[in-house]
Simulated scan of single mutants.
Amino acid sequence: MARAAIAVAVLSLVAGCSLLPRSGPTRGQIFDGSVLREGDAFVLVVTDRVNAIASVAPALGFTSDFLNAGVLGSDVIAPGDTLGLTIWENVAEGLLVPQGQNATILDEVQVGGDGFIFVPYAGRVRAAGNTPERVREIITERLGDQTPDPQVQVRRLAGDGTTVSVVGAVGAPGIYAIERPTRTLSQMLARAGGTPVPPDIARVTVTRGGHTGQVWFEDVYAPHNDIALRGGDKILVEADTRSFTALGATGAQSRVPFETQTISAIEAIAQVGGLNPNLADPTGVFVLRNEPEDIAEALVGEELTGTQRVIYLLDLTRPNGLFFARDFAIRDGDLVYVTEAPIVQLNKAVGALTGTLNSVGAVTQLGAGN
């Protein structure tokens, strides 16, 4: 009768297992969250078909607005640029050259926002959109009406007109002019000192007007991603900010940053120490995710509205279960949860009951001793 009483007590504790400590919901409680029961989530067993649909990840890259922009000519002048002018005259008393000298230098002539510069006796000269050679011809022509055979030299200096800003995880953040050695994205990143972040998890974002494009740092050097720069471009380099959360019967429960561009479910579990051999149920590995409407519709085969809650079940004990987990791609914000094995709750129930009986026995012996 004593053994029967203990068995009844154990079964009662197991039936009321919500009173026992555990790392999270049971496998059955997660299934209760299905749309087929009490919840609003779709619970799907991972197969090759599910992997083909759910593992689609947004691709990084530049739009045609960036890709079709040609490389700027290194000698084209832009508003904000700074020019240097040297003017020679062949007369003793020239218009601009001081007495006793044969040339005058006009340094740091700023190109205005309207694209013009001012040169004494030549007036307002359009510089923006012209090459230094063309500006030289215009100034020479205008001065030639007032002094015989003037000689003019125009130099394009590094100015603020065609500059880009490079910020974030680079060796030397700052504002850089687009010059002959820095006309493309890869050249400008090299000019800014590269990045200390591992190239495979460093992202490069370029903002131009109202358009933004993003690529992995290591992909910048592919010809189609090494875009030509434009004045005003903003370049941001940062480490990958994606992460997933691991909970339940794993080696560790934590928020885990992505260490590579792609992470499979098996790799995610390995990153947190694998399944806890004393607790984990290999038939109850779940990935919880909010899926966009189009992916959710493809998964369940019916019309849906808006983002949907989807729970993916990875049963590692099934034939090819490990292969399915290897091919299942973890995405940013995923929750990887491993349930405890049913025997764990039974052991906890027996332990709780045994501890209770031992405590009662100790009290009884104490009372008998008194």
Score class of each variant (00 low, 15 high):
I311R: 06
T339N: 10
L335P: 01
N320Y: 13
Y312H: 06
T307R: 15
R309S: 14
T317Q: 14
L353M: 04
P319W: 08
L304N: 11
T339V: 12
G355A: 06
T307W: 14
A341Q: 10
G333L: 01
T354Y: 07
L314V: 04
G321K: 05
A325D: 01
L322Y: 11
T307H: 12
A325H: 01
F323T: 12
Q308S: 15
A352H: 00
A341V: 15
G306H: 11
G355L: 04
Q345R: 13
Q345K: 07
T354H: 02
F323I: 13
T356V: 01
K348F: 03
T339C: 14
G321E: 12
Y312P: 04
L322T: 09
T354S: 10
T317R: 14
G333W: 02
D315S: 11
T305W: 09
T317V: 06
T356P: 00
T317Y: 10
T356R: 00
T305D: 08
P319T: 05
T305I: 12
D327L: 05
P342Y: 08
R331Q: 15
R326Q: 14
I330S: 00
A341E: 08
L353R: 06
L304T: 04
A349K: 04
G321L: 04
V344G: 06
I311V: 13
V338W: 09
A341T: 10
A341I: 14
A325F: 03
N320C: 05
A352S: 04
N320Q: 13
V350T: 03
F324V: 03
I343R: 13
D334V: 00
P319L: 07
P342V: 04
G306T: 07
N347P: 02
L313M: 09
E340H: 09
D332P: 05
N347I: 03
F324W: 05
I330H: 00
I311G: 06
L304K: 10
I343S: 13
P342H: 06
I311L: 10
E340S: 07
A325L: 08
F324Y: 14
V336G: 00
Q345M: 14
L335E: 04
L322I: 13
A329F: 07
L346W: 11
T307D: 15
F328D: 01
L346C: 02
G355H: 01
G333F: 01
V344S: 02
F328K: 00
K348S: 08
L335Q: 07
F324S: 11
P319K: 07
P342I: 08
N347E: 13
A325I: 02
L322C: 10
P342N: 09
L353I: 06
V310L: 13
T307P: 07
V336D: 01
L335C: 00
L304S: 11
G321M: 09
N320R: 14
R318H: 11
D327F: 03
L313K: 10
I343P: 04
L353Y: 09
Y337F: 15
V350L: 05
L316M: 13
N320A: 13
F328H: 05
V350G: 04
R309N: 15
R326K: 12
T354Q: 09
L316R: 07
F328I: 02
Y312W: 07
T305G: 05
N347T: 00
A325S: 02
D327P: 05
V350A: 02
R331D: 07
F324M: 13
V338F: 08
T317N: 15
G306S: 13
T307A: 15
P342D: 06
L316C: 12
